[in-house]
Amino acid sequence: MGRNALMDIKRSLDEHIGQKIMLKANGGRRKTVEREGVLEETYPSVFIVKLDEETNSFERVSYSYADILTETVELTVCQDEDNQIRISYVKQ
C-alpha cells in the first residue's frame, strides 16, 4: 500500500482536473461537512478544490491523498447528472 496507493489516487484525480466534484469530509465531533466545487489542481501530496462561492465561506480548500485513502474525505466526480464517479482506493 503506502506511497504507491497515494500515487494511484493522485493519478485518478489528475484525470478529473477542472471537473465538478462533491466531497464529504470528517469535520470532527461526529460532524460531516459536505461541499461542492471544482477540482482545481493536484500537487505531489495534496489536491486543491475551488469551492462554490455561493454556499461556502472559503474560496479554496486542500486535502491530502491520505485523506481519501483513510476515508476521512469522500470525493465524487460529477461528470453530468447521471454519471458520477467516486474516487477511492481499492486494495488490489
Rank of each mutant, 00 (worst) to 15 (best):
K10H: 01
S62W: 07
D80G: 07
V49D: 00
L69K: 10
D80M: 02
K10N: 03
R35P: 09
H16W: 05
I68C: 04
K24R: 14
I21H: 00
L51S: 11
E41Q: 13
Q84P: 02
S12C: 11
E74I: 13
T55F: 07
E81A: 10
L75N: 02
R60T: 05
Q84M: 09
E53V: 15
Y43I: 13
K10M: 01
N26A: 11
S64W: 01
L75I: 08
G27Y: 08
R11S: 12
E15G: 05
S12H: 07
G27V: 11
D67C: 12
G37N: 00
V49W: 02
R35C: 13
I48L: 10
E34H: 05
H16G: 01
N56H: 15
N83Y: 03
V33Y: 12
D80T: 09
P44G: 02
G18T: 06
I48A: 07
E36M: 14
L75Q: 00
S12P: 04
K50T: 10
K31L: 15
M22P: 01
P44Q: 05
V46I: 14
S57T: 12
E53Q: 15
F58S: 12
G28I: 06
Q19N: 11
G28M: 09
T72W: 01
K10G: 02
V49M: 03
S57M: 14
Y43C: 12
E81C: 04
N83D: 01
D82A: 07
T32L: 13
L51D: 02
E15A: 09
E74K: 06
E59P: 08
P44A: 07
V49H: 01
R29M: 14
T42E: 00
L13V: 08
E15R: 13
V73A: 00
K10V: 01
R35W: 01
V61N: 02
D82V: 05
Q84T: 06
G18M: 04
E54M: 10
V49I: 13
V46P: 04
T70W: 07
E71H: 09
R30D: 07
E53D: 14
E74H: 07
N56S: 14
V61F: 04
S45L: 06
L51W: 05
V33L: 15
Y65S: 00
E40N: 08
V73L: 10
A25V: 14
K31S: 13
D67A: 08
E41Y: 05
E54P: 09
E36G: 13
T42D: 00
N56F: 04
D80H: 09
E74N: 10
A25H: 06
E34T: 15
E40V: 04
H16I: 02
E54G: 11
R11M: 07
R30F: 11
Q79L: 10
K24D: 10
Y65F: 03
G37S: 03
C78F: 04
T76H: 03
S57A: 12
I85Y: 02
A25P: 05
V73T: 04
N83T: 11
E41G: 08
Q79N: 08
L23A: 01
L69P: 02
A25N: 12
D80W: 04
K50R: 15
F58A: 15
R11D: 05
V73S: 01
E53M: 13
R86N: 03
G27K: 09
L69W: 03
V33S: 08
E41K: 15
E81M: 12
